[in-house]
Simulated scan of single mutants.
Amino acid sequence: MNLENLQEKIDTIIISNASTENKLQTICDFLESEISYYDWVGFYFKNGDKNELKLAQYTGEETEHTIIPFGKGICGQVAVSNENFIVQDVSEQDNYISCGWKVKSEIVIPIFVNGENIGQIDIDSHTANTFSEKDTALLEYVCRKLSRIL
Protein backbone atom coordinates (compact mmCIF):
# COMPACT_ATOMS: atom_id res chain seq x y z
CA MET A 1 0.00 0.00 0.00
CA ASN A 2 1.49 3.30 -1.11
CA LEU A 3 -0.01 5.75 1.40
CA GLU A 4 1.26 8.85 -0.38
CA ASN A 5 -0.34 7.92 -3.71
CA LEU A 6 -3.62 6.94 -2.06
CA GLN A 7 -3.71 10.17 -0.07
CA GLU A 8 -3.10 12.22 -3.21
CA LYS A 9 -6.07 10.53 -4.90
CA ILE A 10 -8.23 11.20 -1.83
CA ASP A 11 -7.19 14.87 -1.96
CA THR A 12 -8.22 15.02 -5.63
CA ILE A 13 -11.65 13.58 -4.80
CA ILE A 14 -12.16 15.97 -1.85
CA ILE A 15 -11.32 19.12 -3.85
CA SER A 16 -13.41 18.13 -6.87
CA ASN A 17 -16.55 20.07 -7.76
CA ALA A 18 -18.76 17.04 -7.11
CA SER A 19 -21.46 17.04 -4.44
CA THR A 20 -20.56 15.77 -0.99
CA GLU A 21 -22.62 12.64 -1.60
CA ASN A 22 -20.76 11.97 -4.86
CA LYS A 23 -17.41 12.52 -3.13
CA LEU A 24 -18.34 10.00 -0.42
CA GLN A 25 -19.40 7.46 -3.04
CA THR A 26 -16.24 8.04 -5.08
CA ILE A 27 -14.11 7.49 -1.97
CA CYS A 28 -15.92 4.20 -1.28
CA ASP A 29 -15.47 3.04 -4.87
CA PHE A 30 -11.83 4.15 -4.98
CA LEU A 31 -10.79 2.45 -1.73
CA GLU A 32 -12.61 -0.78 -2.59
CA SER A 33 -10.99 -0.92 -6.04
CA GLU A 34 -7.47 0.06 -4.93
CA ILE A 35 -7.06 -2.13 -1.85
CA SER A 36 -7.63 -5.79 -2.60
CA TYR A 37 -8.79 -6.77 0.89
CA TYR A 38 -11.32 -3.92 1.24
CA ASP A 39 -14.43 -5.91 0.33
CA TRP A 40 -17.06 -3.50 1.69
CA VAL A 41 -16.49 0.23 2.21
CA GLY A 42 -19.16 2.50 3.61
CA PHE A 43 -20.06 5.54 5.64
CA TYR A 44 -22.46 5.69 8.56
CA PHE A 45 -23.58 9.03 10.01
CA LYS A 46 -25.46 10.01 13.13
CA ASN A 47 -29.18 9.93 12.33
CA GLY A 48 -30.34 13.40 13.38
CA ASP A 49 -30.88 13.61 17.14
CA LYS A 50 -31.37 9.86 17.50
CA ASN A 51 -28.80 7.65 19.20
CA GLU A 52 -28.29 5.66 16.06
CA LEU A 53 -26.25 5.57 12.87
CA LYS A 54 -27.71 5.61 9.39
CA LEU A 55 -26.00 4.07 6.38
CA ALA A 56 -24.99 6.56 3.71
CA GLN A 57 -22.81 5.83 0.68
CA TYR A 58 -21.18 2.42 0.35
CA THR A 59 -19.61 -0.02 -2.09
CA GLY A 60 -19.98 -3.77 -1.77
CA GLU A 61 -22.75 -6.24 -1.09
CA GLU A 62 -26.05 -4.86 0.13
CA THR A 63 -26.54 -4.85 3.88
CA GLU A 64 -29.66 -5.01 5.99
CA HIS A 65 -27.86 -2.91 8.60
CA THR A 66 -28.99 0.50 7.41
CA ILE A 67 -29.72 1.67 10.98
CA ILE A 68 -27.36 0.75 13.84
CA PRO A 69 -28.17 1.74 17.44
CA PHE A 70 -25.35 3.36 19.40
CA GLY A 71 -23.45 0.69 21.32
CA LYS A 72 -24.49 -2.20 19.04
CA GLY A 73 -21.90 -3.85 16.84
CA ILE A 74 -18.50 -2.41 15.99
CA CYS A 75 -19.96 0.73 14.38
CA GLY A 76 -22.30 1.35 17.29
CA GLN A 77 -19.43 0.94 19.74
CA VAL A 78 -17.32 3.51 17.86
CA ALA A 79 -20.25 5.94 18.00
CA VAL A 80 -20.05 5.71 21.81
CA SER A 81 -16.29 5.32 22.39
CA ASN A 82 -15.15 7.91 19.80
CA GLU A 83 -12.15 5.67 19.14
CA ASN A 84 -10.89 3.58 16.24
CA PHE A 85 -11.90 -0.06 16.42
CA ILE A 86 -10.04 -2.81 14.57
CA VAL A 87 -11.32 -6.37 14.70
CA GLN A 88 -8.88 -8.82 13.14
CA ASP A 89 -11.25 -11.78 13.65
CA VAL A 90 -14.96 -10.96 13.93
CA SER A 91 -15.72 -14.42 15.34
CA GLU A 92 -13.97 -13.36 18.54
CA GLN A 93 -16.27 -10.35 19.13
CA ASP A 94 -19.32 -10.75 21.37
CA ASN A 95 -20.96 -7.52 20.21
CA TYR A 96 -20.48 -8.04 16.47
CA ILE A 97 -23.31 -7.58 13.96
CA SER A 98 -22.74 -10.01 11.12
CA CYS A 99 -23.02 -8.46 7.68
CA GLY A 100 -22.44 -11.78 5.99
CA TRP A 101 -20.61 -15.05 6.43
CA LYS A 102 -17.73 -13.88 4.23
CA VAL A 103 -16.69 -11.04 6.58
CA LYS A 104 -13.65 -12.01 8.65
CA SER A 105 -12.31 -8.63 9.85
CA GLU A 106 -13.48 -5.03 10.20
CA ILE A 107 -12.02 -1.58 10.82
CA VAL A 108 -14.07 1.47 11.82
CA ILE A 109 -12.66 5.00 12.11
CA PRO A 110 -14.76 7.90 13.46
CA ILE A 111 -15.19 11.22 11.66
CA PHE A 112 -15.06 14.32 13.86
CA VAL A 113 -16.38 17.77 12.96
CA ASN A 114 -15.68 20.48 15.55
CA GLY A 115 -14.83 17.79 18.09
CA GLU A 116 -18.11 15.89 17.61
CA ASN A 117 -18.25 12.32 16.28
CA ILE A 118 -20.67 12.73 13.36
CA GLY A 119 -20.06 9.42 11.63
CA GLN A 120 -17.52 6.89 10.54
CA ILE A 121 -15.96 4.97 7.73
CA ASP A 122 -16.45 1.21 7.98
CA ILE A 123 -14.39 -1.38 6.08
CA ASP A 124 -15.14 -5.10 6.00
CA SER A 125 -12.69 -7.67 4.70
CA HIS A 126 -13.14 -11.30 3.72
CA THR A 127 -9.61 -11.89 5.05
CA ALA A 128 -8.87 -12.30 8.76
CA ASN A 129 -5.95 -10.50 10.41
CA THR A 130 -5.51 -8.18 7.46
CA PHE A 131 -5.61 -4.61 8.82
CA SER A 132 -2.37 -2.84 9.70
CA GLU A 133 -1.16 0.53 10.93
CA LYS A 134 -1.10 1.66 7.29
CA ASP A 135 -4.85 1.05 7.03
CA THR A 136 -5.42 3.04 10.20
CA ALA A 137 -3.23 5.89 8.90
CA LEU A 138 -4.99 5.96 5.52
CA LEU A 139 -8.50 5.91 6.96
CA GLU A 140 -7.70 8.52 9.61
CA TYR A 141 -6.41 10.70 6.77
CA VAL A 142 -9.65 10.18 4.83
CA CYS A 143 -11.72 11.10 7.90
CA ARG A 144 -9.64 14.22 8.62
CA LYS A 145 -10.02 15.41 5.04
CA LEU A 146 -13.76 14.69 5.04
CA SER A 147 -14.24 16.61 8.28
CA ARG A 148 -13.43 19.78 6.35
CA ILE A 149 -16.33 19.35 3.91
CA LEU A 150 -19.01 17.78 6.10
Rank of each mutant, 00 (worst) to 15 (best):
L3Q: 00
L3I: 12
E4G: 02
E4Q: 15
L6R: 04
Q7V: 09
Q7W: 14
E8M: 08
K9G: 02
T12C: 08
I13E: 12
I13D: 04
S19E: 08
S19N: 12
T20W: 01
T26C: 05
I27R: 00
I27A: 11
C28L: 05
D29P: 05
D29C: 00
E32I: 07
E32N: 15
S33A: 14
I35Q: 02
I35K: 00
Y37P: 01
Y38M: 02
G42S: 11
Y44V: 06
Y44H: 14
Y44K: 02
F45W: 03
K46Y: 01
G48W: 01
K50S: 06
K50R: 13
K50T: 03
N51D: 15
N51R: 14
L53H: 12
L55V: 07
G60W: 10
I68W: 04
P69M: 04
F70N: 02
G71W: 13
G71P: 04
C75S: 11
G76A: 06
G76R: 05
V78E: 02
V80N: 10
S81Q: 07
N82E: 06
E83R: 03
V87E: 05
Q88R: 07
D89L: 05
D89F: 05
S91T: 13
Y96P: 11
I97E: 06
I97H: 00
C99T: 13
G100E: 01
W101R: 04
K102A: 05
V103N: 12
K104A: 08
S105T: 12
S105D: 09
I107L: 03
I107Q: 00
V108R: 04
I111W: 07
F112H: 02
E116M: 09
Q120D: 09
D122A: 07
H126A: 08
H126Y: 15
A128I: 03
T130N: 04
F131A: 00
K134N: 15
K134Y: 10
K134W: 06
K134P: 06
L139F: 05
V142D: 00
R148N: 12
L150E: 11
